[in-house]
Amino acid sequence: MWHKYPNSRCTHVVSIDTIDRTVDPVTGIIRTERVMGCKQKAPLWIVKVRPYSPPACVFAVSNAAARLMQLFGGSEDAFVREISFVDPATQNVTITSVNLSLSQFATCNELIRYSPASPTHTLFSQTAEIQARMALWRSAADGLEKWLVQRFEQNAHLGKLGFTDVLRNLWEERHRAPSPS
């Protein structure tokens, strides 16, 4: 499971870092916390159409996040937090993932579980919970407004400089020209 990324079907995962790992000296359960970075390379529909790659939903949100970040001129990398538990006693593996990037707007929590159904079968289950942070839309809107105002100010300033240049050139031309007498 720690070798799942990168794979050729999931090229959008570009970095994987373990940020915490414990081996419980009583239960033997391994807990791993990782941060994965993904790039917006594949179009969003590919991520949607092929839900093969857990955490698909998290990546869908992350890719959307990456798109938005590109739009706003930020970093194009989107990051995901993943926590896994491997329990040798019950032979259960659980993996939860949540997007870090743009988590102030929406989060997608994904839970994947592998558990033994019989000696020859493993049960796979996958659930996801998407949550938009409505209370924060206001601040997002405020932020967007501020950004747009800043852009307007910058552009307005540039526009003013440009027009000043035009006027100056006209004025200089007029004064350089021989007086019609």
């Binding site: 009583v26 239960t27 033997g28």
Partner: peptide, 10 residues
């Protein structure tokens, strides 16, 4: 289980 887990964690 505890004995093995302790050994492997160390």
């Amino acid at each position: 289980r505890a004995a093995y887990s302790k050994k492997k964690a160390d």
